[in-house]
Design a protein around this nucleic acid. Structure first.
Length: 691
DNA sequence: CACGTCCCTGTTTTT
DNA sequence: CAGGGACGTG
């Protein structure tokens, strides 16, 4: 049982190379996950590195989980390896242990995007600044890039149009600190700062790891690169795997230059290219190569050219539909077809560029009785009802958390409004709960009553949350009569929301059973990702292309190939962004093993009612000669079943685009068919197949 | 001073 | 369609 079994020469080389830092340029479907897991096994078995001295960083929690289990199984371990995680989870672990060394309370909370933006909004109001000039989204993204690049010079640029941006940034950092909170970027930044400031601690963590492996390197940002450099030190014990052509996260700081810089920062780097693809058919790969050949050709010698020994397969297909509704119905119909041909629902995925496109797809699949799962969208722990209940638990662990406090002080309505909160704030010394006590005498009896009910509840939660989180959550739910609150507030979908709460109770029950702490649970929920919820069930998965990173499916539908959607309208004026859109398309197509369907609608309804004319995505034109256009051209010779002369009235037929139908009349070469879904159409014989 | 209603706007992608 | 801000009412 060699660890090198079933690896090709290049893969073997990548597993065996440990003398110098290693950069593996691994194309889509070239078996990079395999290389990483085999390499870990090799390091343990042959190089005798203890399992817990290997650090492996993956892009998603899901990937980390799978890798852990694979290794546990391969090595017949009792427990899972503990240092396989994402960058963010790794940094949380480090920070929890070292909190006191950077003036952080170890009960710090992680602010999500919403909390961070609300914090910024509060700051803007306090500073009396215009919300238009300093849009919280914009401001947040500027602050993020400062932190991700560890470089404040970007402020000089923005100060021309946003003179107070520096002040806002300062205040934002101060506020987070006061709240005993960190944002996503802080997890990385604070860890790096800790290492830079404290040699001893750095050495401690360096010596914890004898080897470091990193996946999806093209999507790491500057500070992650820096962190790796710090952890590696002068040693050579590092392997990173990536593919610049699959970089799709520059908009949140990913820096594909990390791949180029790697050689500089890690001397004597060896480079190995994995270009043999094991996933896709020749046709799919050819189309993918065509897509990426239209990119500007940066990263010269780092660009991979994929090839495969897989069979030819079918051409990538394009279906043009009249409306968005028809588009999703087409997809549903195809799914049914393939199901009846023996494919599983779980063999198929629908990929989209923007999550609002899930709506139509979901409706069509629902109507067609096709089981599906939506990955991402509004995530579970970002739902208002979940955050409401969690805020009670959070405030009990960290009573400094302003966002949690504001969320629940008047939930359910207790007659406490802005003025009361302002007053409480004047009494703020150590934390919000204390502030409420201290300010208490200031208020009218009515407000006092409201505050009392709040304080009583919080006292209870503080007492029991840690030991019995599930029961405590239930207690909160009943105490605030939350079901009633949901019923009144959300007349349409309150039942779904109640179901979500029940789901939360279950999750908390698991926490109690598994012996995890509430803090651990809260931090996992903050760092939960779309893919984490990917069920191993026989359902069609619907997700954004970003969420599909690292996954593969036999059949892939890519919907909404329209200018403004894919590529996104925001990319129109920016060449770099357009390049990223193109890479995104490349990633989408390379998810497929056997079949790819591209679709777009000539008309799409925006918001509620109005239809808008769309324009075909530029990407389609770029690969036109690779495509089989459904419903327009004669199907290629592979489909010999085309019926020619023996058509008769009443015969069941099928059409690529319109689905199943029955022949109503025949007139020379033209046949009128009544389609199950599309109604009556007259078309040429050649387009029909017998059933 | 809190709370309800009306009207407006605005859609990337996410740790 | 939905979330948030402005504005008027009790």
């Amino acid at each position: 049982m060699s660890v090198l079994e079933n690896l090709n020469e290049k893969q073997k080389e990548a597993v065996l190379h440990t003398q110098t830092p290693l950069l593996v340029l691994a194309g889509a479907g070239s078996g990079k996950t395999r290389v990483i897991t085999h390499k870990i096994t090799y390091l343990i078995n042959e190089k005798h590195i203890p399992l817990d001295k290997i650090l492996a960083i993956t892009f998603t929690n899901k990937a980390a989980q799978e890798m852990k289990q694979r290794i546990k199984k391969t090595l017949s371990l009792e427990k899972e390896p503990q240092w396989i995680s994402t960058f963010h989870s790794l940094c949380v672990k480090i920070l929890r242990q070292e909190a006191q060394n950077i003036g952080l309370d170890k009960n710090f909370v992680i602010y999500d995007e919403e909390d961070s933006k609300k914090t910024l909004k509060d700051i803007l109001k306090e500073l009396n600044l215009d919300l238009e000039t300093y849009k919280p989204e914009k401001t947040k993204s500027i602050i993020s890039s400062i932190k991700q690049d560890m470089d404040e010079s970007i402020l000089e640029f923005y100060e021309f149009t946003m003179p107070h941006i520096r002040q806002i940034y300062q205040k934002y950092q101060d506020t987070l600190k006061q709240n005993n909170a960190v944002d996503f970027d802080d997890l990385l930044l604070l860890t790096v700062e800790l290492f830079l400031k404290n040699r001893e601690i750095l050495h401690k963590w360096q010596s914890k790891f004898d080897y470091i492996l990193v996946d999806e390197y093209q999507d790491t940002n500057k500070i992650q690169h820096k962190l790796l450099k710090l952890l590696t030190g002068d040693r050579t014990c590092i392997t990173v795997v990536g593919d610049p052509q699959q970089c799709i996260y520059t908009w949140r700081g990913a820096n594909p230059n990390n791949i180029l810089e790697f050689e500089k920062d890690f001397p004597n780097t060896k480079i190995i290219k994995l270009e043999k693809n094991y996933r896709s058919t020749t046709q799919i790969l050819q189309t993918a190569n065509k897509i990426i050949s239209n990119s500007k050709g940066k990263w010269k010698e780092k660009v991979l050219k994929l090839w495969t020994e897989n069979k030819e397969g079918e051409k990538v297909k394009l279906a043009v539909l009249s409306t968005d509704k028809k588009e999703s119905e087409f997809i549903a119909r195809k799914i049914k077809d393939y199901k009846s041909q023996g494919y599983l629902y779980s063999d198929m995925t629908v990929l989209i560029r923007m999550s609002f496109l899930t709506r139509n797809i979901e409706e069509a699949l629902l109507r067609a009785d096709i089981p599906y799962q939506i990955i991402g969208g509004v995530k579970f722990y970002e739902r208002a009802e979940i955050k409401d209940i969690l805020a009670y638990l959070k405030i009990s662990l960290n009573p400094k958390d302003t966002q949690a406090f504001k969320r629940i002080i008047n939930l359910p309505p207790r007659g406490i409004g802005q003025k009361t909160i302002d007053k409480i704030k004047q009494y703020y010394k150590t934390d919000w709960i204390q502030a409420v006590y201290d300010a208490y005498d200031e208020f009218s009896n009515k407000v006092k009553l409201g505050l009392q009910s709040f304080l009583e509840l919080v006292q209870y939660v503080q007492k029991y949350a840690n030991q019995q989180p599930a029961q405590t959550a239930k207690y909160i739910y009943d105490a605030i009569d939350y079901e009633n609150y949901l019923q009144n507030k959300y007349t349409n979908d309150w039942e779904d929301r109640v179901a979500n709460i029940k789901e939360l109770f279950n999750a908390l029950q698991e926490v109690e059973k598994s012996g995890k702490t509430l803090t651990q649970f809260l931090e996992e929920s903050s760092l939960s990702q779309a893919q984490d919820n990917l069920e191993n069930t026989n359902t069609v998965k619907i997700m954004t292309i970003h969420a599909s990173k690292g996954l593969e499916f036999p059949i892939v539908f890519i919907a909404g190939l329209e200018e403004g959607i894919f590529p996104s309208g925001r990319a129109f004026e920016d060449i770099e962004q357009m390049e990223e859109e193109r890479r995104l398309f490349y990633v989408a197509v390379t998810r497929a093993k056997e079949k790819v369907y591209l679709t777009y609608a000539k008309q799409r309804s925006s918001f509620g009612n109005r239809f808008q004319e769309t324009k075909q995505s530029r990407f389609i034109k770029e690969i036109k000669e690779e495509l089989e256009i459904l419903g327009k051209k004669r199907p290629p010779k592979t489909q010999k079943k085309v019926i020619s002369d023996e058509l008769r009235i009443g015969q069941l037929v099928s059409h690529e685009l319109f689905g199943k139908g029955v022949i109503k009349s025949i007139n020379d070469n033209r046949v009128t068919v009544i389609f199950e879904k599309e109604g009556e159409k007259t078309l040429k014989k050649g387009f029909l197949k017998g059933l």
